[in-house]
């Protein structure tokens, strides 16, 4: 199935969103490696692998548990470490 990852913070440099192809039974924790693979050809001033690892995934209303089951055409948002205020 296809899902879309909306980007914020340091991930903005890769575009506003990234589309990934995942297995039909994928859960949130299954997003990380395909996402890293999709970004591997980009140059960044930071460790992409490390930042993906330290990020969480969310919808507009909640931060998702790592075991949360994904659905076709789901829109996820990647949340790198935050620094508001």
């Amino acid at each position: 199935m296809q899902i879309t990852v909306q980007t914020f913070g340091a991930f903005r440099q890769f575009g506003r969103q990234i589309i990934l192809e995942l297995a039909d039974d994928a859960i949130v924790s299954d997003v990380r490696q395909p996402l890293v693979n999709a970004l591997v050809d980009y140059k960044a001033k930071f460790d992409i692998d490390g930042l993906v690892e330290s990020s969480r995934f969310a919808t507009e209303t909640s931060i998702l548990d790592e075991q949360h089951r994904l659905t076709e055409n789901m829109l996820l948002t990647i949340l790198p470490p935050v620094s508001g205020g």
Partner: peptide, 8 residues
């Protein structure tokens, strides 16, 4: 807010 809000 500094620890929890999605702001960068």
């Amino acid at each position: 807010i500094k620890h929890r809000a999605p702001v960068w």
